[in-house]
């Protein structure tokens, strides 16, 4: 069922939601960009619809809520372990179609691949997703080619409609709340993008053999292994474990996990000094193939959702979509070489 809300009506919904949920949405953080007098758009808790940044792509994704960059798993003494508490409230997350598709990727790893992840599931079970309609594609988006431009598996959708807000609802529990606060019922179908300026083509015949292509060598020097592409990615799921002890009481501490990047030094280090993929080009290959090849081999669909945040974030202007498009020639190059 669809609804049309005035600003105060939708804010009444947000107010009601706040009793049960933390509401997270892309928000413009003034002055929080890396450069002075620039802003950062991040996922933050919001109270009012005016706080939502509808017109820009967020620099970091919703992932920061489901998989916090730094998350305490448990506290310990030398012989006891106490699990860290989860949030008391659930969460409503407002996100675009590409990101909603990314949730499926996170679920794949954290709920399925091997054991269920206790901490992820604890959060995930109490999350409601509200789709932000996309009226047009942003720079570097390539969701259409990754087939993530549309999503109907949302609890509700929201987008600006004239001076008001159009909402489509799939979650029956919210129906009375929406009825009570909306101006009118209305057929609503969320906007979605049908074309993007950036196009990608994942070639047929990809295999690990493409590792041998010379295309990766370029990134040995161009890439500065900062990890931004991973940290902003809504589908990257890696973490590293850390044990810390409190400086004021050395017997007590905590174990936490922090987001990890396969582009950053140390990612593959094993105790005793071994490491794999020392060249940045090979790290790029590893990441690229995970996003558009081996994840699909294991789970049946591509990991990359085409949000283009990695392109947006790269300080060295390395375009991931361009890398995908180079794969075709790389496959041919490797095949040629093998034939000779």
């Amino acid at each position: 069922m669809g609804f049309l809300f005035a600003e105060n009506g939708i804010n009444a919904v947000f107010e009601k939601w706040a009793e049960e949920y933390h509401v997270y949405a892309p928000k413009r953080m003034e002055g929080k960009g890396a450069f002075s007098d620039t802003d950062s758009v991040r996922y933050e808790e919001i109270n009012k619809v005016e706080e939502i940044e509808f017109d820009l792509k967020s620099h970091f994704s919703f992932k920061d809520i489901l998989l916090p960059m730094s998350e305490t798993l448990f506290f310990f003494t030398e012989e006891q372990v106490k699990e860290a508490d989860g949030p008391k409230k659930g969460a409503v997350i407002l996100l675009r179609s590409c990101d909603l598709h990314a949730v499926r990727r996170l679920d794949e790893i954290y709920l399925k691949n091997g054991f269920e992840d206790y901490y992820y599931k604890r959060l995930r079970e109490n999350v409601r997703f509200v789709l932000l309609g996309c009226k047009q594609a942003f720079e570097n988006c390539f969701c259409v080619d990754m087939e993530t431009n549309r999503a109907d598996f949302y609890d509700a959708s929201i987008e600006k409609d004239g001076d008001g807000y159009a909402v489509d609802n799939h979650y029956s529990d919210w129906e009375p709340l929406f009825l009570a606060n909306s101006m009118e019922k209305k057929e609503v179908s969320p906007s979605y993008v049908t074309e993007t300026e950036v196009r990608v083509e994942v070639p047929e015949g990809l295999s690990l053999d493409v590792s041998k292509s010379r295309m990766w060598d370029e990134y040995d020097k161009r890439c500065i292994d900062c990890g931004r592409c991973n940290y902003v990615c809504p589908t990257c799921t890696c973490f590293t474990m850390q044990d810390i002890f409190y400086t004021d009481n050395g017997k007590v501490g905590e174990r936490r996990r922090v987001t990890a990047s396969c582009m950053v030094n140390g990612y593959t280090d094993v105790a005793g000094g071994g490491s794999y993929r020392q060249k940045n080009g090979q790290r790029m290959r590893f990441k690229t193939l995970h996003k558009v090849y081996d994840f699909k081999k294991r789970f049946g669909y591509h990991m990359c959702v085409g949000c283009g945040r990695c392109d947006d974030a790269c300080p060295e202007y390395i375009s991931f979509s361009n890398i995908i498009n180079k794969l075709k020639d790389a496959v041919a190059e490797v095949n040629d070489h093998d034939e000779k």
Binding site: G31, K32, A34, F35, S36, S40, H59, F60, T259, S261
Partner: peptide
């Protein structure tokens, strides 16, 4: 100097207001 802010890939370091 802000080098930490410029280097930080996660936005953990930001500029003072």
């Amino acid at each position: 100097c802000g080098e930490c802010v410029l280097a930080c890939p996660t936005g953990a370091w930001t500029r003072g207001s």
